[in-house]
Design a protein around this nucleic acid. Structure first.
Lengths: 272, 272
DNA sequence: GCTTGACCTTGACGCAGCGTCAGGGTTGCA
DNA sequence: TGCAACCCTGACGCTGCGTCAAGGTCAAGC
């Protein structure tokens, strides 16, 4: 009523935009526009006689502003506040966002490093020392199944006590490079496919018992600097038992000889 | 049946893990474990007599593998394939992932840059030249409302033809620093709050017409190197009309004087 | 006047990776 | 025997839209 009303370019009719024109001007999809309406970021405009939304030029500007923030990685929930924020609040929010982005970038860079290590490693979730160890086992001719079980065990250990892996690995390395002990390990490894009634088991149990006995005499009182939690010991024992059909029988035989457990083998009747 | 069955550590019973124990060993949440079951990443284990899931040690290893990949940013949908992939496929997939991560990182870095520019700029979505221009308008004493409209216009222009903004801005800068033209602009700016019946309008229309006339005589045949699309012209005119109550009337008066349009003003009766 | 194709409308599901109730049953310890 | 701490399934929530589905509208050509 207060405006001139004969020009052909008045926004009331001719120049009003449809939603797809609006979207095109701002470089977004129609769906996004409706989404912003639903989220309350962009006010719903008037509708024309058939219910179509009709936008003025101001809506284009608003929409571009929204997109600019969204393209900058601002979550839509924050776009709302930012659009109506004063300079000071805006600066604070921007600082916030920048911190968030920096930490996300760092996160992704960590991901890249992990990916790179996955590509290098023998298998998943295995620290490099352990990779070296299983490679050594392969050189020494251990059966593949045994190597897998060993590898899995180290995955479990690495998950529970990552800082101890390097030291424990070093011990293992010396053990496996020690001639008689290696032979014992290899013979244990040969039990891969034996059943619980395998005739080799008793003799093997004898050898293991003798060895442990000797080691106990020698290293008596030597406390491990990396105590393995009972839970992990149980888990590793379980892994051993699951993996080899004859493992249960072997432990029984060892128990007859006064030893219990496997990962952390101990005397059944503790001697002072 | 084929295994020894008197030991206390057999996995069938005692050593079987509940879901929360499994989760704890692998360092994930119970919910995540169930999610992996639902996604088919981790096989559903046997249930005990009361329907509880019971896991063996092998499940811990599998779960750790899944987490390792997931922690490296591998989408769960790809984890499935990767877990069962051979070395070659695995290497390819890892290469893929690394590329994806790199591009995501670049994306976020672009976000950071944009955020930084937002913090610096006069307002959202405004290129630096335009910021300088509106600052100059402020110095010259243009009313704040007029500056806002001008700024919004440049937001629209920058969105449609970003590469042309610098050149167009340069033209505008020289115009606004030209004494008589600046005075005209300032007087137009004073119409901010006038109604369509404002008595100053006819005189202003005369001045605008005279100026355009002179400019047309001088710059006849000078083709713009950055043609502004008709759609954008219309949009900018609409923005002008929306923003000032008397804009429609001013255009009418101009039309009486033989000119039509505003952003891209032209003769109504094209003179050869 | 009728068809056709390009728009417009609302409503609803889907996506990733779980977090987080809700509403139950189980177990183990005091 | 009671209580806390587990376990179960089912379902919604979050982010930012993409993508049907099932219809109404508009402009153009016949």
């Amino acid at each position: 009523m207060t405006e001139g009303d004969t020009g052909r370019r008045r926004p009331e009719n001719g120049a009003m935009l449809t939603i797809s024109q609006l979207a095109a001007y701002a470089g977004v999809t129609v769906r996004a526009v409706r989404h912003y309406h639903a989220k309350g970021l962009l006010p719903e405009p008037e509708r024309d006689h058939s219910g179509y939304r009709r936008y003025g030029a101001a809506a284009v500007v608003e929409l571009i502003r929204i997109r600019t923030l969204a393209d900058a990685g601002v979550p839509l929930s924050r776009v709302r506040e930012l659009l109506s924020a004063g300079d000071a609040d805006f600066a604070v929010a921007v600082g916030d966002l920048d911190r968030r982005l920096r930490s996300e970038i760092r996160e992704l860079q960590r991901h890249r490093e992990r990916i790179a290590r996955l590509a290098a490693g023998d298998s998943l979730a295995l620290p490099p020392e352990a990779v070296a160890y299983v490679d050594r086992m392969r050189e020494l001719g251990f059966p593949e199944r045994v190597i897998e079980v060993e590898r899995d065990s180290w995955i479990l250990i690495a998950a529970q006590m990552p800082e101890a892996v390097a030291d424990l690995m070093a011990i293992k390395q010396t053990q496996i490079d020690d001639e008689p002990l290696r032979r014992l390990y290899l013979d244990i490894g040969d039990l891969v496919d034996c059943g619980p009634d395998d005739p080799r088991l008793p003799a093997l149990a004898d050898r293991v018992a003798a060895f442990i006995e000797a080691a106990a005499a020698q290293g008596a009182g030597v406390e491990d600097e990396h105590p393995v939690s009972p839970a992990l010991v149980e888990l590793l024992d379980a892994a051993f038992l699951e993996s080899f059909a004859c493992a249960g029988r072997l432990l029984e035989l060892l128990e007859e000889r006064g030893w219990t457990g496997w990962t952390d083998i101990r005397r059944t009747t503790p001697a002072t």
